[in-house]
Design a protein around this nucleic acid. Structure first.
Lengths: 192, 192, 192, 192
DNA sequence: TATGAATGAGGGTTCATTCAT
DNA sequence: GATGAATGAACCCTCATTCAT
């Protein structure tokens, strides 16, 4: 009963991601989204009470995906292989990660947004958990000094992933560069 | 003769910087700027044809300041001291640097914006020039491998500077952490 | 055979009355009505082509009820007792009467509305008929001057019923005040 | 400096009054108002932050006018002449009075509205004050019983003024009818 | 030159109404 | 007959920009 939906959640989130990456959070409008999905603005309002509700739900969706992705890192491999895996996966979610950075700019006007923001806060820990394990593996292998803060190191890694690719390296080469920098810094491995 | 300007460029740029940091590029409006300077919006329009023109000019202004700052690094010191100096200076322009990051989001609608964007591209090189010298110093001291791309390394450094300070370290400690990561990566100095 | 109706007319008019009194005519929406009856909006549209059609039909329904109520005034009692009865009954339909006042604000867009508005006009006479009898009784008892227009006097009575109860009198006291004013005006009975 | 206003406050309030009487508070929109004044909607927003602010200010304006009008009743005349004067003046503000009745339906969303509502409350007393004097005059002349509540009686008078003119009497005759009803009620003067 | 006033385009949102199952 | 989904028109409001003094 009732007629068939013209657009699925999947389609909606895909279009949302595209648009957020193209025009940013403030540039993102229901008009644009509706146009891209070839539906009316009102149709979206049937499912989301307002723009903020939609955006925060989108972010939770992306976060869940990211968590699942990072949780799939094989904890049985050695540190270097785990790091490889980690960097590849983080690189694949690079764009989305930037979009998620906008979460902080969503004003908390509705109860729903407040709740979802709290949820996102909790998910942040879930996202970091597998990464902390990688760092720990590094420490247990004696590769990383015990005293270094995993959070800080992960912060650096996340930042490094977002480096602009001015030199237009291939993803493989770019990731290789990142890996070298992340592991050994400016000084590099081969020196001294 | 004629009426005296009610506001100087200096005041205007200061107010612009404050506002951009407070509300972001999209939140930045002529209304806000006029209010802060206690002048009318129309007065600003006399000097800048539109919002984008003003923003791009502001960025050129900040870039010039940044270039001057980074050019003041003493090329006679050794690599580590230069790097220290570099990081401290970059840290002090951290916020502005983030604001500059918004440059990419300015749509190129007017001829003026297109020209200034090109100019900014050129200035980017000027900004990097003193930094490349630091890297070169590192290479000449045998600290950095010859084959590594200075641009890439600088990109990493810039990214690292922007790391979020979740652990609320003091600036001194934060810079210390950055330095260690930038120099030696995850692996760190004391290992191997 | 056919699905059973999920809601009766009675239920629908009850819900309509509640809502109109709560939110007014313009605040009244099919969404609210559907929600209160726990059915879909479309189900209402099956029975009423549009909002105005429903509202005008609702008013005819209320009018019929009001007519029946006022017709129950016992024409055999004397003037004062009839007036008592009248005021009590009018007071009990006070809210609905106010709601009916909104009828005039319904735009006559459909043929149905136009017809029903005419019907309402006719019913207005039916509503007034028993009241005119009360006035006539007053005249025949020599309480009311023959020359006075019954319609006009009834208009005054209806207006008086709607007086705002700023002093928060009990209904009994309020009705008593009304009665005194309606019968004797400002000057009052006990004077002269 | 700056260009000349295309519309004065006076014009704006006149157009507002017309529209409110034509379409009611909820039917009143900035679009309609702008169209009638032949200006853009945005021009109105320059002067009033939102619809409610405008409406509440309009009501204060009308209230001030009404107060001035009623204060001009000559307190030295006798009761009947004062009442005459009163009814004539109230009749002339009949429409506005109906519009003022809508004040209660304005939602209090902004601070400004809340303040103005309080102000209106105070003005209500100012409006009633000269009327209470008329009642008092009636009492001192022995025309009105001492125990009767002036507020209640004024409520009745206000209601009576709003009676619908179904019989299309001339204003003079209508006022005459009102006066008779208000003074002597149904029973009338000449009886007993 | 600086200003107050005015404007048009566009964003967020609601609602009466229609359509397809 | 009942439903869920979709729609377009209209509303409130903001903002970049222009105009006339």
């Amino acid at each position: 009963m009732g007629r068939e939906k013209k657009f699925s959640r999947e389609e909606l989130w895909d279009a949302t991601r595209e648009l957020v990456l193209e025009v940013g959070y403030t540039g993102f409008t229901f008009s644009l989204l509706a146009e891209r999905l070839d539906i009316s603005r009102a149709a979206i309002y049937k499912q989301f009470h307002n723009k903020e509700d939609l955006m925060i739900d989108y972010m939770v969706y992306e976060m869940e995906f990211s968590i699942a992705l990072l949780q799939s890192i094989d904890a049985n491999k050695d540190f270097e292989h785990q790091l490889d895996d980690l960097l590849n996966k983080m690189y694949s979610m690079k764009d989305v990660h930037q979009a998620l950075g906008l979460a902080t700019t969503i004003p908390s006007t509705t109860e729903h947004v407040i709740q979802q923001k709290q949820k996102l806060g909790g998910m942040h820990r879930d996202l970091y958990a597998p990464l902390v394990k990688v760092i720990d593996q590094g420490k247990s292998e004696g590769k990383i000094a015990q005293h270094r803060s995993a959070n800080m190191l992960l912060g650096f890694i996340f930042q490094t992933i977002d480096v602009p690719n001015f030199e237009r390296l291939t993803p493989e080469n770019l990731i290789q560069e990142m890996k070298e920098f992340i592991l050994y810094g400016l000084i590099g491995k081969n020196i001294e």
